[in-house]
Write a protein that binds this DNA or RNA. Structure first.
Lengths: 168, 168
DNA sequence: GTGAATGCAAACTATTTGCATGATC
DNA sequence: GATCATGCAAATAGTTTGCATTCAC
């Protein structure tokens, strides 16, 4: 899944620098997550470490499907079962470490929880655009005030047509 | 799937009256749709008529899954195959007569295209709330101006927590 | 009578579950 | 050594496809 990150116009953070920093923190983050797992009575196993390693590759900025994760994990540990990946993903999600997002049709994608963004998916070219969650603030408060509905974060993508496909 | 329709506060239309009117128009609407199908080189068959009949029951205000439709259609024509229902739904969607919506996880739901609304789904009680598409106008124009992205109508529901589940 | 649509079965994708084995605490 | 996690296989849900037959035009 190809992803483009779009910054809010006023933002001045360099995403490349952020990625490098994340990558250097990677090992530490894996241990930190596994510590949380252990604190909840879970166990620190090789498959779980490998799954986190793949999830954190590139600083966790990817949207990986379960299939992607299975392939990535098997490059490290060839005998890992699909069901192990699914069960681990569910466990990590229950722990609040990761989330899954539905990018239109097709399989769920997984990534770290930390970022506050939303997804736009182009239904013509399948490109994913990330936008700051702040764009949703107006809608969220309107839905809350008018309907009492609390919009939950980034679980489903918004589908539409991207700029490139619009001009075609 | 249980659905609640919420009107914009200033609106004064009686939804019950609208449903009765729709129901009386039902037969005429089926013929009208089938006329469109025929105009496009399609054929008017008994399964298609039955599928439209089920879709239009209750004025087309339901969110029916493919499974719901198969069950409903088989009450009229017991031998209709699932694949026929799926193929007909795809054909009708290509014609612009119906749309499918993803209400959170689980199967797609289908309904007539005519209405301009969006769906909110409570991730705790699965209740569906319909809101006027106008609520999205601000977000849509912001996404268009800032990212060149044209939000497409009502294809995916917004997930969150409804008022009732919030106070629990 | 020709081609679109159907019914049936089988394939397919994404995910979940049962259960014996194995590894971690 | 108790029990959590794994691997494997089979089951499941939702949907799609291949193909011979049927039916609308």
């Amino acid at each position: 899944v190809t992803t483009i990150e779009m910054k809010a116009p006023t933002e001045t953070v360099d995403p490349t620098a952020a990625r490098v920093a994340d990558h250097q923190r990677s090992d530490g983050r894996i241990d930190a997550v596994l510590a949380v797992v252990r604190a909840r009575g879970g166990r620190m196993t090789a498959p779980r470490r490998a799954i986190l390693e793949v999830l954190l590759a590139g600083g966790g900025h990817e949207h990986l499907t379960a299939e992607d994760l299975v392939a990535g994990v098997r490059r490290l540990l060839p005998r890992v079962a699909e069901s192990t990946v699914y069960r681990t993903l569910t466990a990590l999600e229950d722990l609040g470490v990761i989330n899954h997002v539905h990018l239109g049709h097709g399989p769920s994608t997984y990534h770290l929880t930390s970022r506050t963004h939303r997804h736009l998916v182009c239904e013509h070219c399948d490109q994913v655009v990330e936008i700051p969650a702040a764009e949703f603030a107006g809608l969220a408060s309107s839905l809350s005030n008018t309907y009492g509905f609390a919009l939950s974060d980034e679980h489903f993508a918004l589908v539409g047509t991207c700029g490139a496909c619009r001009v075609r």
